[in-house]
Nucleic acid binder design. Structure first.
Lengths: 199, 199
DNA sequence: TTTTTTTCTTAATCTAGTTCATTTTTTGCA
DNA sequence: TGCAAAAAATGAACTAGATTAAGAAAAAAA
């Protein structure tokens, strides 16, 4: 059984998007399990089907891939109050291509694919919530594609810093560099250049 | 009033994703308007709110942005049986940042934001459909981010050709080049290199 | 058909960002 | 607290892909 304290932020996340009464949110939240992950622990691995959507209560996770040369690319970050998974795997219940790992000790809430189906059948409002987060994620990914195509590495870094200052504090630089589509070395150079400009 | 012929492919698109009876699909489809766009015509423009989601019956559209240097970047294509819009603008009803233009004379079905809200209120199944297409779009964008980060320009082109041979027939090369994150000149070089390898 | 406009190709030059090798700093943990 | 391992920084050499420029081909317009 879940403790109230664990689900407080997710409760807010839901209520800020869909109008539900107390009982409805409670029923929704009762379908989640809690879990804790140690830093460097894997949550999802390639070739296994992603069984869960993961809501981060606190901590930091990232999803990433290796390409054929063994280089590591961060696909997404998730810190407090964000969702993460290999959605391509989760939604279609196909083998994952991504890793999801903890970047720091983290507490999460897990929703299994089966429980999600039960929820969507049980109450229209639950499905509305899933629609809204999918649409939000779609819009966000579209914005990311736009920046990746149309801005230079330096601009991408500057924009990220401005938009997500909390994240760049929490994650290692190599993970941020590959998320932004550049090497660690180059990010280091960019950072240096920008900070020397300020002073 | 819409003619049946116009909505046939959208009908199939819906029924392959959500189980509806005849009346339900008809009611859903009655909320769309038809439109035809001439090649080069703009469907959505920056600073105006995207009022519609656009389903392409036949033809070809693309969404794109200009960056501050006036370079043009294709964000998405939509050919027969695809949806397109500036989703960031449409979903949140904020001013668009993208253009959407017709690359060829096209017939489309338009769903206004207001009508979409009516539909979602009217029947649970309609919302299920919107959830499913949002999730599909999210998964697709995530795959795109992965390729853009982890593959070379040549590989991106090869994969695209393999996956969407119909599209590269239909769209101008400069639009494809910027979609794949490279210049027209470089795409031309890549094409040449690959086709000379084959012979 | 001819003219005009748009798209595509080719080639030379250039550069943003990578690679590789080494050093310094930070982190974790016995 | 000290030491090994991981992460970050630095710099030099390199390259994938951009830029520029000019001509050829194709498509649209007249």
């Amino acid at each position: 059984m879940l403790h109230l304290k664990d689900t407080g932020t997710l409760r807010k996340h839901i209520l800020s998007r869909v109008d539900m009464d107390e009982d409805e949110v409670n029923h929704f939240l009762s379908h989640f399990t809690t879990a804790k992950f140690k830093k460097k622990q894997f949550v999802i691995q390639p070739n296994f089907v992603a069984k869960h959507r993961i809501y981060v209560v606190n901590g930091a996770l990232r999803s990433f891939v290796f390409n054929e040369n063994g280089q590591d690319f961060t696909i997404n970050f998730a810190i407090d109050d964000w969702w993460i998974s290999d959605f391509n795997s989760y939604i279609f219940q196909q083998p994952a291509t991504l890793f999801v790992e903890a970047l720091a000790d983290s507490s999460v809430l897990l929703l299994s694919f089966e429980n999600e189906q039960l929820l969507k059948k049980a109450n229209h409002k639950y499905e509305t919530y899933f629609r809204i987060i999918a649409e939000g994620g779609l819009a966000q990914h579209q914005r990311r594609v736009i920046t990746n195509l149309s801005k230079s590495a330096e601009e991408r870094y500057r924009e990220f810093e401005e938009k997500y200052p909390q994240i760049s504090q929490k994650v290692p630089q190599y993970a941020l560099a590959s998320f932004l589509g550049m090497t660690t070395e180059y990010l280091s150079k960019v950072r240096n250049k920008l900070s020397s400009k300020k002073n």
